[in-house]
Measured scan of single mutants.
Amino acid sequence: NKFNKELGWATWEIFNLPNLNGVQVKAFIDSLRDDPSQSANLLAEAKKLNDAQA
């Protein structure tokens, strides 16, 4: 379904953000699993944090 596809894509993108540490990645992935409907918002937050830590 739509959420599974978005969840998978967001998970892959978060895993590939180079400036996040393992704890941050795990926290974002756990949040995605808790509420897949928020995948776009969580991915945006992860990208912002990644950019801030560059």
Rank of each mutant, 00 (worst) to 15 (best):
A52Q: 11
I14T: 02
W9Q: 14
P36H: 02
G22T: 11
L7S: 06
R33F: 13
G8V: 15
N16V: 04
S37A: 09
A40R: 12
N19C: 12
D30T: 13
A54H: 08
F15V: 08
E13G: 03
F28N: 00
E6R: 05
Q38S: 10
S39D: 03
D34M: 14
A27W: 15
V23H: 12
N41T: 13
N4K: 05
L42C: 05
V23K: 12
P18R: 07
P36K: 02
E13C: 15
N4P: 11
A40S: 08
N50L: 01
D51P: 01
Q38K: 09
A46G: 01
V25G: 00
D30S: 11
N19F: 15
K48M: 11
G22D: 12
L20I: 02
N19L: 03
E13W: 15
D34E: 14
N1V: 07
N19I: 01
D51N: 08
S39V: 15
D51T: 09
N1M: 05
L20M: 01
A52H: 08
L43K: 01
L7Y: 11
L7P: 05
K26E: 05
A52G: 05
E45L: 11
R33V: 09
T11L: 15
D51W: 10
A44P: 01
P36D: 02
N41K: 14
L7R: 03
A10V: 15
D34Y: 10
E45I: 13
R33P: 01
L42Y: 05
A54M: 08
G22Y: 14
P36I: 06
G22Q: 13
I14Y: 03
S31D: 03
E45P: 00
D51M: 13
S37C: 08
V23F: 14
I14H: 01
I29W: 05
N50D: 03
L42N: 01
L49V: 08
A52V: 10
Q24I: 03
V23E: 13
L17E: 00
R33G: 04
S37N: 11
E6N: 10
A44Y: 10
I29M: 08
E45K: 11
A10F: 15
A44M: 10
K26W: 12
L20V: 01
N16H: 11
L49M: 08
E6L: 14
F15W: 10
A46M: 06
L42E: 00
E45Y: 11
N16E: 03
V23T: 10
D51G: 05
L49W: 04
N41S: 13
A40N: 07
R33A: 08
A44Q: 08
Q24N: 01
L43M: 04
D51Y: 08
D34V: 10
V25A: 05
N4H: 11
N16A: 07
I29F: 05
D34A: 15
R33M: 14
E13M: 14
Q24G: 01
Q53I: 09
N50C: 04
A52N: 07
K26D: 03
G22S: 13
R33T: 09
L49Y: 03
Q38V: 04
D34F: 11
N16L: 08
G8T: 13
L43Q: 02
Q53H: 04
V23L: 12
A46C: 03
S31N: 08
N4M: 12
S37I: 03
D35L: 06
K2A: 13
E6I: 12
Q24F: 02
K48R: 13
G8D: 14
L7K: 03
K47R: 14
L42P: 00
Q53W: 03
S31F: 09
P18W: 05
V25I: 14
A27N: 10
N50F: 02
K5P: 12
K48V: 06
D35I: 03
F15G: 03
L32I: 11
E6Q: 06
L32Q: 01
I14M: 04
L17P: 00
K47Q: 09
I14V: 05
S31E: 08
L42Q: 02
Q53G: 04
T11M: 15
A52M: 13
A46S: 02
P18S: 07
G8W: 15
A10H: 06
F15T: 09
F3E: 11
T11Q: 11
P18A: 07
P18H: 07
Q53T: 04
F15C: 14
A10S: 04
L20Y: 00
L32M: 12
K26F: 05
N16F: 05
L49S: 02
Q24T: 03
V23P: 11
A10C: 12
L43F: 05
E6V: 11
T11E: 12
N41I: 12
F28L: 04
Q38E: 08
L20E: 00
Q38N: 14
I29D: 01
L49A: 04
L7G: 03
A54E: 07
F3K: 08
L43Y: 06
P18K: 09
D35Y: 08
F15K: 07
Q24K: 00
N4C: 15
E13N: 05
D34S: 12
S37F: 05
V25W: 03
D51I: 10
L42H: 03
V23G: 10
E6Y: 10
D35M: 04
S31V: 06
D35V: 04
I29N: 01
N41Y: 14
L20C: 02
K5F: 08
N1I: 09
T11F: 15
G8Q: 15
F15M: 15
A46N: 00
N50S: 09
D51R: 13
S31M: 14
G8A: 15
T11Y: 13
A27K: 13
G22M: 14
L43H: 01
D34Q: 14
A54P: 04
G22A: 13
K26V: 05
L7V: 10
S39G: 06
A54N: 09
W9V: 08
K47G: 02
A10N: 03
G8L: 15
V25C: 07
S39L: 10
L49H: 02
